[in-house]
Amino acid sequence: MRQMWRDAENFCEFVRTIPANGDVDKLYDFYGDREKLPKCFSAEDQVKNLFIAAMTWVYFHEIGHLMQEHGYIRARYGSGNAQGANEVHDCESNAENQLTGTAAVVSHVTELAADFEATNFYLMELIRHIINPDFVAEEKKGEISCGLVYLMLCGLSIVFFRFNGSMPLVPSAVPQGSHPNPMIRLEINIPHVFEILDIKGIRELTGHGLDRKQLVLLCGKAVFTATLYWSMTKTAEKKFDNRFMVRGLLTNPVVLEYLVPIVKCWDEILPEIKKIRRFGSPLGLLTFTDEFRERITKKEIWGEGPESRKS
Protein backbone atom coordinates (compact mmCIF):
# COMPACT_ATOMS: atom_id res chain seq x y z
CA MET A 1 0.00 0.00 0.00
CA ARG A 2 2.83 2.39 0.85
CA GLN A 3 4.46 1.69 -2.52
CA MET A 4 1.21 2.40 -4.34
CA TRP A 5 0.94 5.76 -2.57
CA ARG A 6 4.51 6.59 -3.62
CA ASP A 7 3.67 5.56 -7.18
CA ALA A 8 0.70 7.95 -7.16
CA GLU A 9 2.85 10.80 -5.85
CA ASN A 10 5.73 10.10 -8.25
CA PHE A 11 3.42 9.70 -11.23
CA CYS A 12 1.71 13.05 -10.66
CA GLU A 13 5.04 14.79 -10.10
CA PHE A 14 6.48 13.27 -13.27
CA VAL A 15 3.50 14.38 -15.34
CA ARG A 16 3.59 17.93 -14.00
CA THR A 17 7.26 18.32 -14.91
CA ILE A 18 6.95 17.31 -18.57
CA PRO A 19 8.38 20.33 -20.46
CA ALA A 20 5.77 22.38 -22.31
CA ASN A 21 6.04 22.25 -26.11
CA GLY A 22 8.70 19.53 -25.93
CA ASP A 23 8.58 16.35 -27.98
CA VAL A 24 6.74 14.44 -25.26
CA ASP A 25 4.24 17.23 -24.71
CA LYS A 26 3.44 17.37 -28.42
CA LEU A 27 2.54 13.66 -28.43
CA TYR A 28 -0.64 14.63 -26.59
CA ASP A 29 -1.95 16.52 -29.60
CA PHE A 30 -3.14 13.14 -30.88
CA TYR A 31 -5.64 13.03 -27.99
CA GLY A 32 -7.06 16.49 -28.67
CA ASP A 33 -5.41 18.41 -25.83
CA ARG A 34 -2.25 18.36 -23.75
CA GLU A 35 -3.88 18.14 -20.32
CA LYS A 36 -2.25 15.26 -18.49
CA LEU A 37 -4.09 15.44 -15.16
CA PRO A 38 -7.75 16.42 -14.61
CA LYS A 39 -8.05 20.11 -13.70
CA CYS A 40 -11.21 19.51 -11.70
CA PHE A 41 -9.03 18.26 -8.83
CA SER A 42 -6.32 20.02 -6.84
CA ALA A 43 -2.78 18.63 -6.97
CA GLU A 44 -3.35 16.93 -3.62
CA ASP A 45 -6.65 15.42 -4.72
CA GLN A 46 -5.12 14.16 -7.95
CA VAL A 47 -2.73 12.02 -5.92
CA LYS A 48 -5.42 10.92 -3.46
CA ASN A 49 -7.94 9.98 -6.12
CA LEU A 50 -5.37 8.06 -8.15
CA PHE A 51 -4.26 6.14 -5.06
CA ILE A 52 -7.82 5.42 -3.94
CA ALA A 53 -8.76 4.27 -7.44
CA ALA A 54 -5.82 1.88 -7.60
CA MET A 55 -6.45 0.46 -4.13
CA THR A 56 -10.19 0.11 -4.75
CA TRP A 57 -9.61 -1.73 -8.00
CA VAL A 58 -7.16 -4.14 -6.32
CA TYR A 59 -9.75 -4.80 -3.60
CA PHE A 60 -12.41 -5.54 -6.21
CA HIS A 61 -9.94 -7.77 -8.09
CA GLU A 62 -9.53 -9.93 -4.98
CA ILE A 63 -13.32 -10.06 -4.56
CA GLY A 64 -13.49 -11.24 -8.18
CA HIS A 65 -11.20 -14.15 -7.36
CA LEU A 66 -13.32 -15.09 -4.35
CA MET A 67 -16.75 -14.78 -5.95
CA GLN A 68 -15.67 -17.00 -8.87
CA GLU A 69 -13.85 -19.51 -6.59
CA HIS A 70 -10.63 -19.23 -8.55
CA GLY A 71 -8.66 -21.27 -6.02
CA TYR A 72 -10.96 -24.21 -6.74
CA ILE A 73 -10.97 -23.53 -10.49
CA ARG A 74 -7.17 -23.41 -10.69
CA ALA A 75 -6.81 -26.64 -8.76
CA ARG A 76 -9.45 -28.47 -10.78
CA TYR A 77 -8.49 -27.30 -14.26
CA GLY A 78 -4.85 -26.41 -13.76
CA SER A 79 -3.68 -29.39 -11.72
CA GLY A 80 -6.61 -31.77 -11.89
CA ASN A 81 -7.04 -31.76 -8.13
CA ALA A 82 -9.66 -29.54 -6.50
CA GLN A 83 -9.04 -30.71 -2.94
CA GLY A 84 -7.82 -28.07 -0.54
CA ALA A 85 -7.93 -25.35 -3.19
CA ASN A 86 -8.63 -22.09 -1.41
CA GLU A 87 -5.74 -19.72 -2.04
CA VAL A 88 -4.94 -17.30 -4.85
CA HIS A 89 -1.71 -15.31 -4.72
CA ASP A 90 -1.48 -12.03 -6.63
CA CYS A 91 2.10 -11.06 -5.77
CA GLU A 92 3.94 -13.97 -7.36
CA SER A 93 5.40 -11.87 -10.16
CA ASN A 94 8.95 -13.09 -10.56
CA ALA A 95 10.89 -14.98 -13.16
CA GLU A 96 11.63 -17.97 -10.89
CA ASN A 97 9.51 -21.12 -10.63
CA GLN A 98 7.25 -19.98 -13.41
CA LEU A 99 4.04 -21.81 -14.14
CA THR A 100 3.94 -23.36 -17.60
CA GLY A 101 1.51 -25.29 -19.76
CA THR A 102 -2.07 -25.76 -18.62
CA ALA A 103 -1.39 -24.40 -15.12
CA ALA A 104 -0.14 -21.11 -16.61
CA VAL A 105 -3.10 -20.84 -18.99
CA VAL A 106 -5.65 -21.38 -16.21
CA SER A 107 -3.85 -18.91 -13.94
CA HIS A 108 -3.79 -16.26 -16.67
CA VAL A 109 -7.46 -16.81 -17.51
CA THR A 110 -8.58 -16.48 -13.90
CA GLU A 111 -6.50 -13.32 -13.48
CA LEU A 112 -8.16 -11.82 -16.54
CA ALA A 113 -11.57 -12.87 -15.21
CA ALA A 114 -10.85 -11.20 -11.85
CA ASP A 115 -9.66 -8.09 -13.71
CA PHE A 116 -12.94 -7.97 -15.60
CA GLU A 117 -15.01 -8.31 -12.42
CA ALA A 118 -12.93 -5.60 -10.73
CA THR A 119 -13.31 -3.11 -13.56
CA ASN A 120 -17.06 -3.64 -13.66
CA PHE A 121 -17.33 -3.29 -9.86
CA TYR A 122 -15.25 -0.12 -9.92
CA LEU A 123 -17.31 1.56 -12.62
CA MET A 124 -20.58 0.68 -10.91
CA GLU A 125 -19.31 2.18 -7.65
CA LEU A 126 -18.04 5.27 -9.44
CA ILE A 127 -21.45 5.77 -11.02
CA ARG A 128 -23.15 5.28 -7.65
CA HIS A 129 -21.02 8.08 -6.18
CA ILE A 130 -21.43 10.39 -9.17
CA ILE A 131 -25.23 10.30 -9.02
CA ASN A 132 -25.20 11.14 -5.31
CA PRO A 133 -25.88 14.91 -5.06
CA ASP A 134 -24.11 14.98 -1.69
CA PHE A 135 -20.93 13.87 -3.44
CA VAL A 136 -21.03 15.76 -6.76
CA ALA A 137 -23.03 18.83 -7.77
CA GLU A 138 -25.22 18.26 -10.82
CA GLU A 139 -23.33 20.77 -12.97
CA LYS A 140 -20.01 19.10 -12.15
CA LYS A 141 -21.01 15.48 -12.77
CA GLY A 142 -19.62 15.20 -16.28
CA GLU A 143 -16.26 16.77 -15.52
CA ILE A 144 -15.80 14.79 -12.30
CA SER A 145 -16.82 11.55 -14.02
CA CYS A 146 -14.21 11.98 -16.73
CA GLY A 147 -11.56 13.00 -14.22
CA LEU A 148 -12.17 9.97 -12.02
CA VAL A 149 -12.19 7.54 -14.96
CA TYR A 150 -8.95 9.06 -16.22
CA LEU A 151 -7.22 8.70 -12.84
CA MET A 152 -8.63 5.20 -12.41
CA LEU A 153 -7.02 4.08 -15.66
CA CYS A 154 -3.73 5.77 -14.76
CA GLY A 155 -3.80 3.96 -11.43
CA LEU A 156 -4.82 0.64 -12.98
CA SER A 157 -1.95 0.84 -15.46
CA ILE A 158 0.56 1.47 -12.69
CA VAL A 159 -0.86 -1.42 -10.65
CA PHE A 160 -0.36 -3.79 -13.58
CA PHE A 161 3.22 -2.61 -14.10
CA ARG A 162 4.01 -2.74 -10.38
CA PHE A 163 2.59 -6.23 -9.90
CA ASN A 164 4.42 -7.44 -13.01
CA GLY A 165 7.64 -7.26 -10.99
CA SER A 166 10.69 -8.44 -12.91
CA MET A 167 8.71 -10.18 -15.64
CA PRO A 168 9.13 -8.90 -19.24
CA LEU A 169 6.85 -6.06 -20.34
CA VAL A 170 6.73 -7.29 -23.94
CA PRO A 171 3.93 -9.83 -24.53
CA SER A 172 4.75 -13.48 -25.21
CA ALA A 173 2.87 -15.79 -27.56
CA VAL A 174 2.81 -18.49 -24.87
CA PRO A 175 1.22 -18.04 -21.41
CA GLN A 176 3.97 -18.30 -18.80
CA GLY A 177 4.06 -17.57 -15.10
CA SER A 178 1.07 -16.80 -12.93
CA HIS A 179 -0.06 -13.46 -14.38
CA PRO A 180 -0.75 -12.07 -17.86
CA ASN A 181 1.44 -9.40 -19.37
CA PRO A 182 0.37 -5.92 -18.16
CA MET A 183 -0.18 -4.64 -21.69
CA ILE A 184 -2.55 -7.51 -22.46
CA ARG A 185 -4.43 -6.85 -19.21
CA LEU A 186 -4.80 -3.21 -20.21
CA GLU A 187 -5.88 -4.05 -23.75
CA ILE A 188 -8.74 -6.16 -22.36
CA ASN A 189 -9.83 -3.75 -19.62
CA ILE A 190 -9.75 -0.49 -21.59
CA PRO A 191 -12.55 -1.57 -23.99
CA HIS A 192 -14.53 -2.80 -21.00
CA VAL A 193 -14.36 0.71 -19.56
CA PHE A 194 -15.44 2.61 -22.64
CA GLU A 195 -18.07 -0.01 -23.57
CA ILE A 196 -19.81 0.55 -20.21
CA LEU A 197 -19.43 4.33 -20.34
CA ASP A 198 -20.85 4.34 -23.87
CA ILE A 199 -24.17 2.86 -22.70
CA LYS A 200 -26.84 5.52 -23.15
CA GLY A 201 -28.21 5.19 -19.62
CA ILE A 202 -24.72 5.41 -18.10
CA ARG A 203 -23.93 8.50 -20.16
CA GLU A 204 -27.10 10.16 -18.90
CA LEU A 205 -26.48 9.19 -15.25
CA THR A 206 -22.89 10.42 -15.20
CA GLY A 207 -23.43 13.39 -17.51
CA HIS A 208 -20.07 12.85 -19.20
CA GLY A 209 -21.46 13.68 -22.65
CA LEU A 210 -18.59 11.99 -24.53
CA ASP A 211 -19.21 10.09 -27.73
CA ARG A 212 -17.51 6.77 -28.49
CA LYS A 213 -14.44 8.33 -30.09
CA GLN A 214 -13.95 10.77 -27.23
CA LEU A 215 -14.23 7.95 -24.68
CA VAL A 216 -11.61 5.93 -26.53
CA LEU A 217 -9.28 8.94 -26.62
CA LEU A 218 -9.81 9.68 -22.92
CA CYS A 219 -9.00 6.10 -21.94
CA GLY A 220 -6.10 5.90 -24.37
CA LYS A 221 -4.56 9.12 -23.08
CA ALA A 222 -4.70 7.91 -19.47
CA VAL A 223 -2.95 4.64 -20.29
CA PHE A 224 -0.42 6.39 -22.52
CA THR A 225 0.46 8.78 -19.69
CA ALA A 226 0.96 5.89 -17.27
CA THR A 227 3.09 3.89 -19.69
CA LEU A 228 5.11 7.02 -20.45
CA TYR A 229 5.78 7.46 -16.73
CA TRP A 230 6.67 3.82 -16.16
CA SER A 231 8.97 3.38 -19.15
CA MET A 232 10.84 6.66 -18.52
CA THR A 233 11.32 6.18 -14.78
CA LYS A 234 11.23 2.45 -14.00
CA THR A 235 12.87 0.66 -16.91
CA ALA A 236 16.61 0.20 -17.33
CA GLU A 237 16.68 2.37 -20.47
CA LYS A 238 14.73 5.24 -18.84
CA LYS A 239 13.16 6.19 -22.16
CA PHE A 240 9.78 5.76 -23.78
CA ASP A 241 9.37 2.52 -25.71
CA ASN A 242 6.58 2.56 -28.29
CA ARG A 243 6.00 -1.14 -27.62
CA PHE A 244 4.14 0.10 -24.54
CA MET A 245 1.59 1.87 -26.72
CA VAL A 246 -1.96 0.51 -26.56
CA ARG A 247 -2.94 -0.43 -30.10
CA GLY A 248 -5.73 -2.97 -29.67
CA LEU A 249 -5.51 -6.68 -28.96
CA LEU A 250 -6.15 -7.79 -32.51
CA THR A 251 -3.31 -5.83 -34.13
CA ASN A 252 -0.44 -7.83 -32.61
CA PRO A 253 0.25 -11.31 -34.09
CA VAL A 254 1.99 -12.43 -30.90
CA VAL A 255 -1.01 -11.48 -28.78
CA LEU A 256 -3.39 -13.15 -31.21
CA GLU A 257 -1.47 -16.39 -30.76
CA TYR A 258 -1.46 -15.96 -26.99
CA LEU A 259 -5.23 -15.50 -26.91
CA VAL A 260 -6.09 -18.78 -28.66
CA PRO A 261 -5.55 -21.01 -25.58
CA ILE A 262 -6.88 -18.27 -23.30
CA VAL A 263 -10.27 -18.15 -25.02
CA LYS A 264 -10.40 -21.95 -25.29
CA CYS A 265 -9.71 -22.32 -21.57
CA TRP A 266 -12.30 -19.67 -20.62
CA ASP A 267 -14.93 -21.50 -22.67
CA GLU A 268 -14.08 -24.69 -20.79
CA ILE A 269 -14.30 -23.23 -17.28
CA LEU A 270 -17.10 -20.69 -17.80
CA PRO A 271 -20.01 -23.13 -17.24
CA GLU A 272 -18.48 -24.16 -13.91
CA ILE A 273 -17.88 -20.54 -12.91
CA LYS A 274 -21.47 -19.63 -13.72
CA LYS A 275 -22.63 -22.41 -11.41
CA ILE A 276 -20.44 -21.45 -8.45
CA ARG A 277 -20.24 -17.66 -8.91
CA ARG A 278 -21.62 -16.21 -5.70
CA PHE A 279 -23.13 -12.95 -6.98
CA GLY A 280 -22.62 -10.19 -9.54
CA SER A 281 -23.91 -8.63 -12.72
CA PRO A 282 -23.53 -10.48 -16.05
CA LEU A 283 -21.43 -7.47 -17.11
CA GLY A 284 -18.75 -8.69 -14.72
CA LEU A 285 -18.15 -11.96 -16.57
CA LEU A 286 -15.25 -11.95 -19.00
CA THR A 287 -16.68 -11.90 -22.52
CA PHE A 288 -15.27 -12.51 -25.98
CA THR A 289 -17.46 -11.58 -28.96
CA ASP A 290 -18.00 -13.83 -31.97
CA GLU A 291 -16.02 -11.39 -34.12
CA PHE A 292 -13.15 -11.51 -31.63
CA ARG A 293 -13.16 -15.31 -31.62
CA GLU A 294 -13.19 -15.48 -35.40
CA ARG A 295 -10.24 -13.12 -35.64
CA ILE A 296 -7.93 -14.94 -33.25
CA THR A 297 -8.58 -18.33 -34.85
CA LYS A 298 -7.62 -17.12 -38.33
CA LYS A 299 -3.92 -17.89 -38.14
CA GLU A 300 -3.50 -16.80 -41.75
CA ILE A 301 -3.67 -13.25 -40.41
CA TRP A 302 -0.07 -13.58 -39.20
CA GLY A 303 1.14 -16.69 -40.99
CA GLU A 304 1.26 -20.34 -40.07
CA GLY A 305 2.81 -19.93 -36.63
CA PRO A 306 5.98 -18.93 -34.81
CA GLU A 307 8.29 -20.10 -37.61
CA SER A 308 6.78 -17.58 -40.01
CA ARG A 309 7.82 -14.73 -37.74
CA LYS A 310 11.52 -15.69 -37.86
CA SER A 311 11.98 -14.58 -41.43
Rank of each mutant, 00 (worst) to 15 (best):
A222W: 00
L153T: 03
S311A: 13
F163E: 10
K274Y: 00
P133V: 14
S157E: 02
F14E: 03
E291K: 14
E92Q: 10
S157T: 05
V246C: 13
A54T: 09
P271R: 01
V88D: 03
N132Y: 10
L283D: 12
W302F: 13
L270Y: 04
G155W: 10
V47D: 04
E237S: 12
G155T: 07
L156M: 11
Y77Q: 10
P282F: 00
F163V: 11
E69I: 00
I52Y: 14
S145I: 06
D23L: 12
I262D: 01
G22R: 09
V149R: 04
L286E: 01
F135Q: 14
F279E: 04
E204L: 11
H65F: 00
R162Q: 14
E304K: 14
N21W: 12
L197P: 08
G207H: 07
T56G: 08
A8K: 13
M1A: 14
E195G: 08
F60K: 06
Q46A: 12
S178P: 02
I296L: 04
G201M: 09
A104I: 06
A173Y: 07
Y72A: 00
C146S: 13
T235Y: 01
S281C: 05
V246N: 12
I52A: 11
V47S: 02
S79E: 11
A236K: 09
R295C: 12
I296P: 06
R309V: 04
Q3N: 15
N97F: 13
R16W: 05
Q98M: 15
G305R: 06
A82N: 15
Y72N: 00
L99T: 04
E125K: 15
R76I: 00
A118W: 02
V246P: 07
D267G: 10
N21F: 14
L126R: 12
K36L: 10
L148H: 09
A53V: 03
M245E: 06
K213Y: 07
G209N: 13
V24I: 14
E294M: 07
Y72I: 00
A8R: 12
H108S: 14
D7N: 04
N86A: 13
T119M: 15
A104V: 03
T119R: 11
V260Y: 07
V136N: 15
K310M: 13
I301R: 09
W266V: 04
M152T: 03
C265V: 05
L197T: 08
A226Y: 02
I184V: 14
R278V: 06
E44R: 14
S93Y: 12
F163W: 06
W5G: 01
S311T: 13
W57R: 13
M124F: 05
G147I: 03
F279S: 01
A8W: 13
F288D: 05
G155I: 10
I202V: 15
I131G: 15
Y122V: 03
K140T: 06
R309A: 06
L250T: 11
P175G: 03
R128N: 15
D115L: 03
D134C: 11
D290S: 08
A137K: 14
F41D: 02
E111I: 05
R309L: 07
E13W: 11
G177P: 01
D45N: 10
T206V: 08
W230K: 10
N94V: 09
R16C: 03
